[in-house]
């Protein structure tokens, strides 16, 4: 599309941008919408009828509507102008799930209505719409299916509006280089945790007793609420975490290069490992992860879990150093 090409040219070396971006005059484009062209056609009909029947009030009506239409251009423009835009938080997802990018629009002045945000990469992307009340902000959520592990890139976003009368389409582009960490798709058919994750013949790790309470230790960041000794907390003994029987017996390692995974492809192994991490985390079995040169010491808890999954997500991918 012509519009697309103009915008491509104007934004050719700009992205990514530093938030917050304020939609100033030169960032906002405006052209008549299809409705606008239809309206113009109706105006021509009104004008012809007025001329032909010499209807003075018809001229008034025609010109009132023509004036209204042209003034609406300013109103549509104004519905975007001076909005301040910054990226919102994005939660990591598993491949195949929908990532929700978010964009925060802050309005310093008059209320804005029916503002839409959509990705420009997809032709028929379903936009998300919202209003931004005066001196407040609204978070727009932009859904996108994360197909592969790694980073799902949101790409350039179009912020657009046709409010108040729909005769003009006003839009602006913005690119914060938003990306969503995508974990490998868990291999749900991966079955239970391997009895010998290491593949060295030691098969007696007592994972069966994993629910058995062993001892209390000081709370570490990343411990799940399930691990917290609520009773101890109630007795005012401070924040303690429970340690379970199984963790004490042996370190439990998940290894990318283990023999049990030899028959699987690269990606299948990552999927299988992801599934096992989910399983281990669910059952509170401390686990370690070896990804060739990278290794994560056995532990449990949210932070450990996210670290491992991120390792899996980015394993072997050539990425520019991330800032997070």
């Amino acid at each position: 599309m012509f519009r697309q090409r103009i915008a491509d040219w104007i934004f050719r070396s700009r992205s990514p941008e530093k938030p917050p971006v304020i939609l100033v005059q030169r960032r906002i484009f405006i052209i008549p919408s299809r409705t606008g062209y239809f309206f113009a056609f109706v105006l021509v009909l009104l004008l012809i009828a007025s001329i032909n029947y010499t209807l003075s009030l018809g001229f008034f009506l025609t010109f009132l509507l023509a004036g209204m239409g042209s003034i609406s251009m300013l109103h549509t423009f104004r519905n975007l102008a001076q909005l301040s835009i910054s990226p919102g938080k994005v939660d990591a997802v598993f491949a195949g799930e929908t990532a929700h990018f978010s964009l925060v629009l802050t309005n310093p002045s008059l209320p804005r209505f029916a503002v839409g945000v959509k990705r420009t990469k997809l032709r028929d992307a379903e936009p998300s719409f919202g209003d931004v009340a005066s001196r407040s902000s609204t978070t727009f959520s932009i859904p996108m299916v994360a197909e592969k592990r790694g980073y799902a890139v949101c790409g350039r976003l179009e912020i657009f509006t046709e409010y108040p009368v729909g005769l003009f389409h006003s839009w602006s582009y913005i690119d914060f280089n938003m990306r969503c960490l995508t974990y490998p798709k868990p291999d749900t058919a991966g079955g239970a945790l391997p009895s010998n994750a290491r593949g060295d013949g030691v098969g007696n790790i007592a994972v069966a007793g994993d629910e058995e309470f062993q001892s209390l230790r000081a709370y570490r960041a990343g411990d799940t609420p399930r691990q917290i000794a609520w009773k101890a907390l109630a007795r005012e003994q401070g924040l303690l975490s429970k340690e379970f029987g199984a963790t004490a017996s042996a370190d439990f390692w998940l290894d990318f290069d283990s023999d049990t995974l030899q028959h699987l492809s690269h990606e299948e192994r990552l999927s299988r490992l992801t599934w096992w991490i989910l399983e281990a985390e669910r059952r509170q079995v401390p686990y370690g992860l070896k990804l060739q040169r990278q290794s994560f010491q056995p532990s449990t808890g949210h932070i450990h879990y996210e670290k491992c999954l991120k390792g899996l997500a980015l394993f072997g991918l050539n990425l520019e150093p991330s800032d997070d």
């Binding site: 010109f63 004036g67 209204m68 003034i71 108040p164």
Partner: peptide
């Protein structure tokens, strides 16, 4: 507001 703001242009055109 739209209509009021259109009035100057309407008069000019008329």
């Amino acid at each position: 507001w739209l209509m009021l703001q259109a009035i100057p242009m309407m008069l000019v055109l008329f």
